[in-house]
Write a protein that binds this DNA or RNA. Structure first.
Lengths: 363, 363
DNA sequence: CATAGGGATATGAACGTTCAAATCGCGGTT
DNA sequence: AACCGCGATTTGAACGTTCATATCCCTATG
């Protein structure tokens, strides 16, 4: 009668059925090599027959580990244009399973005390460690967690402390540099940059890549940069002078797909066509990039997730920068169609069209 | 030395410090009314001083409840244009906390056996119930869960069994109907519909609302409907004949923002302007709707999440249809700017511009 | 032939909490 | 004065697992 309970088998049920002790069943589950093959087979059979799975609470209580990694959902960025949170979360969830862990999403309601939520979770032994996202300058979290010897791994560099290597990040500078080289090789002659106001670590990094490449290839001026927040109108506004300055045959590299969309709109308002008239490259390769045929730098979410979970699980090494592959689409082709046969990448290669989606369902 | 452990206080530590028994501390936490005010104050003080939080594993073990609700992440829809998964997840996460629960996201890797993942979770007592999303015709999950008396609540009707009311849904028909009325009142004279192929419950529902309204107001023909999957190119293709049929001064209601974007593109290719020449209304009010100044029907995610968690917690009642408020933007204004002072809604009213975002950070 | 060694399996205890039942103290009732 | 009732608090047991240790039994070794 108790909801969801039913006939759940415990380790003792299995032990009785297989005529062994509970510890032997435990061993079959946790260290099979310790159990004689014949016994192991018998126990395994009973486990399957009874549908036994160790009770996570009991296991967690005894082992003093939660079997869970916490992930703070950043309520500021969620639902924003070009957010890749959902993809990242799916990757984390998928890849936690083989490591015998689950993902515990949480929000930090108290902006004044951002660590309170972490504190709560630790006090209740709800998570064994944390995945940090959106690291920034003066991020209080790494130091706080280090202090308490709580394991963590970040998507994004620990900007304040180069000694901490518990992170995996995307090499933004390499990305924007690749974008410039790509655009130059496509024949665009003047390449500007649309980024965020200085002071954001990620943004500064991406700008620097553009600057380096533009200087190296002599396809622009370090002054050809504009700034905007993520909002579309602001981005469109900020893009306007850049459009003027690079003119037809020029191009704009953007720090995000959202900014690129702003620029895209700015072009349209002037009757200019992305790609044909002015090249455009975004960053993140979010859903809109694909939708608007916008060339973008693809966040290697899968590899990032894998790397981070590896760090949390104590495998692998940190401090790694992954190069975001460039996904070439129409917005960086002067002929209007996807230019090079395959994407220009420094790492993995993605098919030019990148229409590898699993056939879409509704909603 | 053990990572993350440190000096975590247990209930006995608190009991000793406050000079009471463990059960009294437990009572202070779980049923404060049973404890004399003076004692309660003393215990509460010690709880705060020691930073005590009940160990979730121990609690869960004893109570035989996980303190968790499972949410399957649909890997087919995630990352798609206009996905609202991340917003929904944030709402669920936020609103689970006051109900003393957490959200357990999981994926079902085995497409052949979609219930395997649910089975696993139940067997391990990892969740007390499930939040279902993307319900459809012949969804195996409700029956399976009912069979096992596992609590669940769905975002989306249980289409196959009207007797089951463990759901909250958005009234798609009412939404598209409101869209038609809105467009008609804005002066659009011929209103078509771009939806998904028949057979998807959500899609059929949304189409029906359009059909009803168009007939009632005499602003269209039931034949003026086209079908497309979520992919942009296909949508643009499917929209083309509709554009022809309604012509300038006509409008198109779409079953999703992604489809609307397809239509939007189709308009642009013909040199037609959304709003000024042809009205356009999407569905979901996802990030792109806001970005492209696209009128859309807003999924009342907050209310849905609240309703669903209420059902899981045993409060409230199910079988509720929430009316999606229409968020009017430029794409449904013949003058090109947002028409009515406020959105036309049947429930909550949203500011016309709907720029109520919390100042955006990067990434 | 006794015994050491060691692989396979079993037993006792503990993780931290809550439930059920027992105990305590005290004012009110007969 | 003895007892009842009741609120406040305590005690014993149990949730299901794993760790540490103990036991068993068989083979190899001197």
């Amino acid at each position: 009668m108790r909801a969801g309970r039913g006939d759940r088998a415990t380790i003792v049920d299995v032990a009785r059925a297989a005529e062994v002790s509970r510890q032997t069943v435990s061993n079959v589950v946790n260290s099979p090599h310790r159990v004689a093959p014949a016994t192991r087979a018998r126990v395994t059979a009973e486990i399957h027959r009874l549908g036994f799975r160790p009770n996570q609470a009991a296991r967690s209580l005894k082992k003093e580990r939660a079997g869970t990694w916490g992930v703070q959902l950043d309520t500021r960025t969620v639902g924003q244009l070009g957010s890749i949170l959902d993809r990242f979360l799916v990757e984390l969830t998928t890849r936690s399973a083989p490591r015998d862990h689950h993902i515990l999403p949480f929000v930090a309601p108290d902006v004044a005390d951002p660590m309170a939520a972490y504190q709560e979770i630790l006090a209740g032994q709800l998570a064994d460690g944390f995945v940090l996202t959106d690291t920034r300058y003066e991020d209080p979290r790494p130091a706080w967690l280090l202090d308490r010897q709580v394991p963590f791994a970040a998507f994004g560099r620990i900007w304040d402390d180069p000694a901490v290597t518990a992170w995996v990040d995307v090499d933004g500078a390499a990305g924007t540099e690749a974008a410039v080289r790509h655009l130059a090789s496509e024949g665009y002659e003047r390449i500007a940059f649309l980024g965020w106001p200085a002071g954001s670590a990620v943004g500064d990094d991406r700008r620097e890549g553009w600057r380096r490449a533009v200087v190296a290839l002599d396809v622009g001026d370090a002054e050809w940069a504009a700034e905007s927040e993520q909002q579309l109108e602001l981005a469109a506004l900020a893009a306007a002078p850049l459009v003027e300055v690079v003119g037809s045959g020029g191009a704009i590299v953007c720090a995000s797909d959202a900014l690129a969309l702003g620029a895209w709109r700015s072009l349209h308002e002037r009757g200019l066509r992305p790609g044909l008239d002015i090249g455009l490259v975004g960053f993140d390769d979010s859903d809109i990039a694909e939708a608007l045929d916008l060339t973008s730098l693809r966040q290697p979410i899968t590899e990032v997730a894998e790397g981070i979970l590896g760090l949390l699980a104590g495998e692998g090494w940190g401090g790694r920068l992954l190069t975001p592959p460039l996904v070439a689409r129409g917005s960086s082709s002067r002929s209007g169609r996807v230019p090079t046969p395959a994407a220009i990448t420094a790492g993995a290669t993605y098919p030019a069209g990148d229409r590898t989606t699993t056939d879409g369902d509704k909603r």
